[in-house]
């Protein structure tokens, strides 16, 4: 690999932008494909699919054996609310490979005793969220049940193109939330992007089960083609 290619690849990775290195195995010829150039690339369909699966693999194109190495940013999970569900959700998400941050201004909830080994920010969303660099490779869940905390957090997530946004609450609670968010400028597309009630419908009752339902839904959003994700 050229030093120039390697340096460019590292810059893309540091900026949390996906990139691909396509190598012709027989002769070592190599090219870097940045996410911004993906749409115009002859291999765009294969590359997009591999990015979605997070999978590097050999492919054949024009009779050549090519190795496509996918460099996708580590997915982040931002949890608004240091509640009981979050205590189950945070370790599960970490086991699935996510970088997890829990945000809750209520210090009685956001305590290291309740959240060992998790990045914890005991601040209001307007202070806590900007430094977290919430981006497309972030799943964002709001589970406090408190509109003072959840609503501003969700408004922040709308601006950041998160691949997943979920909010805890019954259909009735969610309907009220929709009214409040719209009054604060949320668009119909913003509202439609919220998964609520949160999680796949698996009859979850305990916090652990709710955590499984949420992570299953996030996984589907991450891995399945758009039209088939729940």
């Amino acid at each position: 690999m050229d030093l120039k290619t390697l340096a460019e690849l590292n810059a893309e990775r540091a900026a949390r932008r996906p990139a691909f290195v396509v190598t012709e195995i027989d002769n070592g010829a190599q090219r870097l494909v940045k996410a911004s150039d993906l749409a115009g690339d002859p291999l765009r369909n294969e590359l997009a699919k591999q990015l979605r699966m997070g999978k590097s693999a050999m492919i054949e194109a024009d009779g050549k054996k090519l190795f496509v190495n996918v460099y996708a940013p580590t997915a982040k999970l931002v949890i608004i609310g240091a509640v009981h569900i979050s205590q189950a959700l945070a370790p599960l998400a970490r086991a699935l490979g996510y970088d997890v941050t829990v945000v809750d201004p209520r210090t009685a909830f956001a305590s290291p005793e309740r959240f060992p080994d998790v990045s914890l920010v005991a601040e209001w969303p307007d202070v806590a969220l900007p430094p977290l660099n919430v981006d497309h490779y972030t799943a964002f869940v709001a589970v406090t049940h408190d509109p003072k905390i959840d609503d501003p957090a969700l408004l922040h997530a709308f601006e950041r193109d998160c691949f997943y946004i979920g909010a805890l609450g019954s259909r009735k609670t969610h309907a009220k939330r929709v009214d409040r968010l719209k009054a604060q400028g949320a668009t119909d597309a913003n509202i439609a992007s919220i998964h609520a009630p949160i999680g796949l419908p698996i009859g979850a009752i305990s916090p652990g089960e709710v955590a499984v339902a949420i992570m299953a839904q996030i996984t589907a959003q991450l891995r399945l083609p758009k039209e088939s994700a729940a």
Partner: peptide, 9 residues
């Protein structure tokens, strides 16, 4: 997406 080989490259 779950690339943890961060510092190798």
């Amino acid at each position: 997406m779950l690339d943890r080989d961060e510092d190798i490259l």
